[in-house]
């Protein structure tokens, strides 16, 4: 089998130009209408890099000052490396058309203290084109899975000079993933709590491949190496890892225990005075949630992680407590 297949017009023999993703072509010599059979690829665009090294480094330094990162990061942080790459994304448009019907229940109390539940019928049309981007390779530890910005000047001018990450995931998997996500988003947008009827049609309208410029910055803090990524079009920091600060961790748990504990106490006190159990439970639950959130920051705030990183998801308080209890049993 030969590796290369010449693309010549079957009518006049002239060399033809194929745009990826298009099945219908025109021969530029004889004007014949042509059809590309089989896999014609996908439309690909690349956005022009609009940032330079200095701008990216400055954006990273500004990012150091934001949030609960180590206070001395701007003094101790040292920028070491900074380079642009092109990351591949699948960009899909999915049309959703349908109806989701059902009802919402609202409970209210009348003057005699009896509670009534009212059913409010709802019929919601869902008609929308949902646009998603999804990274087309394994992002590793870059912390980027989708694009926040789609736009910029389309140009392949920098394509040779900037290293390009290759697409290694299937475009059809991406289309199917977008269909599922579009249905979920349509249901969320409809906002019908109790569904009695649903008829929704989902049609993938288009898929294209976007090469998006991203700058990778590596910096050190003491002996540790951290990183950040900067959007090559907008210049905003997309993701990053940074050292945390024990002071913020301690303040968080001090605030969380005091506020959470007092809210729980207030719930118990007020709840004991009325015969409605929801106030009592509500107060305790709100208090525990505040405690849980601040505990997570206290426990794991020694590293601040922004973006779509794998290890960010793992920080689940229940899992943490589960591991701890499991450890005690053994």
């Amino acid at each position: 089998m030969s590796l290369s297949v010449g693309l010549n017009c079957p009518a006049c023999g002239g060399a033809i130009k194929v745009n990826e993703g298009e099945h219908v072509l025109n021969c530029q010599y004889c004007g014949s209408t042509l059809w590309a059979e089989g896999d014609a690829g996908v439309l690909t665009v690349a956005y022009k890099n609009m940032q330079d090294r200095d701008g990216v480094l400055r954006a990273t330094e500004q990012w150091w000052r934001k949030g609960l990162k180590a206070r001395d990061l701007r003094k101790k942080g040292r920028l070491l490396e900074c380079y642009p790459i092109y990351l591949p994304f699948w960009s899909t448009v999915t049309r959703v058309a349908g109806w989701i019907c059902g009802y919402e229940e609202r409970t209210y109390q009348d003057r005699d203290g009896h509670s009534h539940t009212e059913r409010i019928p709802k019929e919601e049309m869902v008609l929308n084109d949902y646009n998603y981007t999804n990274i087309a390779c394994d992002p590793g530890d870059l912390g980027i899975k989708r694009l926040r910005n789609i736009g910029g000047e389309a140009s392949f001018a920098d394509f040779e000079s900037i290293p390009t990450f290759e697409s290694t995931t299937s475009k059809d998997d991406s289309v199917n993933g977008s269909k599922e996500k579009a249905l979920q988003d349509a249901r969320r947008d409809a906002g019908v709590p109790h569904v009695t009827f649903e008829k929704v049609t989902i049609i993938p309208k288009s898929i294209s491949q976007i090469y998006y410029p991203v700058w990778v910055v590596r910096y050190s803090y003491g002996e540790r190496m951290y990183m950040a990524t900067v959007d090559g079009v907008t210049g905003n920091v997309l993701s990053g890892r940074a050292p945390g600060d024990p002071l913020y961790q301690s303040l968080a748990v001090t605030g969380g225990t005091s506020l959470g504990g007092l809210i729980a106490a207030a719930g118990l006190i007020v709840g004991a005075g009325s015969d409605d159990g929801t106030i009592m439970f509500g107060g305790v639950i709100v208090g525990l949630v505040i405690l849980g959130v601040t505990y997570m920051f206290f426990r794991h705030g020694s590293e601040i992680i922004e973006g779509d990183f794998e290890d960010k998801k793992m920080k689940n308080p229940l899992k943490d407590i589960g591991i701890e209890l499991g450890g005690l049993r053994i």
Partner: peptide
Amino acid sequence: MKVVQIKCPRCQQP
């Protein structure tokens, strides 16, 4: 992938 000329399936005219 193969490129073919689009012809009318009935009269074979391009």
